Simulated assay, not measured.
Amino acid sequence: MKIGIVNDSAMAAEALRRVVAASRDHDVLWMARGGADAVRLCQEARPDLVLMDLVMPEMDGVEATRLIMQHAPCAILIVTAQPRDNVGQVFRAMGAGAIDVTATPALLGAGGAGDSELLAKIKTIGKLLRVSAGEPAAASAAEPAARGAVRHLLAIGASTGGPGAVARVLAGWTPAPATAIVVVQHIDANFAGPFARWLGEQISMPVRPAEAGDALEAGVVLVARTNDHLVMDARLRLHYDASPSDYAYRPSVDVFFHCVARHFSGDATGVLLTGMGRDGAAGLLAMRQAGKHTIAQDQASSAVYGMPRAAAELGAAERILPLDQIGVALRNRVGVRAL
């Protein structure tokens, strides 16, 4: 891949250049010392991937990401020192269109864990850029008895631009009793916990990462928390499954949507939001074919119109709506808890 590097620190930029240059699969197309330069260079020589710093003078990584996605869209990986100390900015950048986040490799030396993690992220993004379709993984074996405590399940899938989109869909309302919500967001396991805490600060419902063995819980938003795929069995218990291990989308929206279609006998709604690739489209179609209600985000309001487009092409979405109308549609369908 052709890669652009954006970092106001010459030492950090050199560390990134060194890691990229050490791989025979990638080339450094250009290096920018700030967000404004990156926006200009993306328009003059668009790379396959931008390694974007967060904290920079004049124009930070969040604003640079937003402008690049508006004027010269390409894949963006946030690479910054101490990303856990800038969680708010990380999720704003992801809401603007960044795909993922990782820490800047060590400034000195070579071949460390930071180098390997960065190259692994780049490799995964390369897969996402090449993928045109993916086979959904099989869910864990069904168990015999079904639970009826949750009467409505709202399943939300998102990728690039997803954190902000999920928050906007769920902000300002509390669903009627007996409604459970599960969110599958493509995000590294290291940031799933911070994402759940951040989302909980944006909405009025409790949010927590889903643990293996959890049951669906009415009134609580459960967020997929590992790089393995979130699955649900016939007893409506949640588990994690590494298979398929080579699937580029982790955790996979398709896998969970297929589980909902197969195992949830009550009323359910599937919502597929902004994201790169096709993950979630086949699963949303399975939900629709199982008699569930399905919604996909429209092109104009999507940071990246990949996953919702694939759903539209398959006829998987009953309704294709702007982001601001999805929350309204869910309120009307699911109802609102009385105060």
Rank of each mutant, 00 (worst) to 15 (best):
T174K: 09
I122T: 12
H71T: 05
G161A: 01
R17D: 01
Q325M: 05
V90K: 00
T65W: 03
G164W: 01
G112H: 14
L129E: 08
P47H: 05
G291N: 05
R331V: 06
G193M: 02
C259D: 04
A142Q: 15
P322V: 04
D53P: 12
R197M: 09
Q299N: 06
Y305C: 07
I181C: 02
S132P: 07
G213A: 05
P251A: 07
I3E: 06
A64V: 00
V207H: 15
A142D: 14
I125A: 02
A36E: 15
R33D: 09
I156M: 01
L216T: 08
M69E: 04
T179V: 07
Q289L: 11
Y249S: 07
A93W: 01
V260S: 01
D246A: 04
S9A: 13
A146G: 13
Q297K: 09
P194M: 07
T102Y: 03
D214K: 11
V39A: 11
V207R: 14
I3Y: 10
I181L: 06
L339I: 09
I78L: 05
R46N: 08
G109I: 03
G114N: 07
A171C: 08
V231W: 04
W198G: 13
A248S: 15
A281L: 09
A158P: 10
L284D: 03
A106M: 04
A180D: 05
D85L: 11
T65H: 12
L330V: 06
G291M: 00
A167S: 12
I122H: 09
D115V: 07
A110P: 03
P322E: 06
L153C: 08
A300G: 09
I3L: 03
G306S: 01
G111Y: 12
P251G: 01
G97H: 00
A96H: 04
G315E: 07
H229N: 12
D233E: 05
G61C: 11
A282P: 12
L29P: 11
P206D: 13
Q43H: 01
D188I: 07
G134M: 15
I78V: 15
V221L: 02
P209A: 06
R168G: 02
F191D: 10
A196T: 06
V50C: 11
V260E: 05
V6C: 07
D298Q: 08
T179Q: 13
A72K: 03
V220N: 13
P206E: 12
F256V: 03
H186S: 10
V223L: 01
R84S: 02
M56G: 13
G157K: 00
I326T: 14
Q289V: 01
I5F: 09
A281D: 14
G277K: 00
R33L: 00
M1H: 11
S116F: 11
S265L: 11
H26R: 06
A103I: 05
V39Q: 13
M11S: 02
F191Y: 15
Q325G: 00
M31K: 08
A145W: 08
V79C: 12
P136W: 07
G283H: 10
L67Q: 14
V231C: 11
N227D: 15
G277N: 09
G327L: 09
R33C: 01
H293R: 15
G35P: 14
A178T: 15
K123I: 08
Q289D: 14
V39G: 14
A12S: 10
S301T: 15
